[in-house]
């Protein structure tokens, strides 16, 4: 059975999808990622789809699910590297990936996660000050 590896990078999880996805594989990735977020307490998930040549409605839904599920576990998901043809096709298909953060490439995606992470820290810091 194929499996998509999930790497841990500090407070974030990194997934690079390099094989063609079929439904079961995408569903397993969803479950694995959510379990990993829970287990590691990760604050962000970065999914690199630059090697993915098509995203259909099912895979689009899985990406949306992952974003919503990680959010309720207090982790942000950002999808990076979408090919232009995939973006055009997704929107025409009717999927706008509402609620999913996106970035052009891994570098910008990481920067986005860092910003969100440090914002959270600052707010936590403020809260601590207030209670003093």
């Amino acid at each position: 059975m194929d499996k998509i590896p999930i790497l841990r990078m500090g407070p974030f999880l990194l997934v690079t999808i390099q094989i063609d996805l079929y439904d079961r594989l995408a569903l397993n990735l969803e479950t694995d990622l959510i379990n990993m977020v829970h287990k590691t307490g990760a604050r962000g998930v970065l999914i690199d789809i630059s090697a993915v040549s098509i995203v259909d409605s099912f895979m689009g839904r899985i990406l949306g699910n992952i974003a919503s599920m990680t959010r309720v576990l207090d982790a942000e998901t950002v999808v990076v590297g979408m090919q232009p043809a995939v973006a055009i096709t997704l929107i025409e298909l009717g999927l706008s990936l509402h609620g999913v953060h996106t970035a052009l490439d891994v570098e910008r995606g990481m920067a986005l996660l860092q910003t969100k992470h440090s914002l959270d820290d600052e707010m936590a810091g403020d809260d601590a000050d207030d209670t003093e």
Partner: peptide, 17 residues
């Protein structure tokens, strides 16, 4: 072209599902 290819392959993926 790549955009039409992607649209066709995506359509095929939906219908196979």
């Amino acid at each position: 072209g790549i955009v039409n290819q992607t649209k066709l392959v995506t359509a095929a993926s939906e219908l196979v599902r």
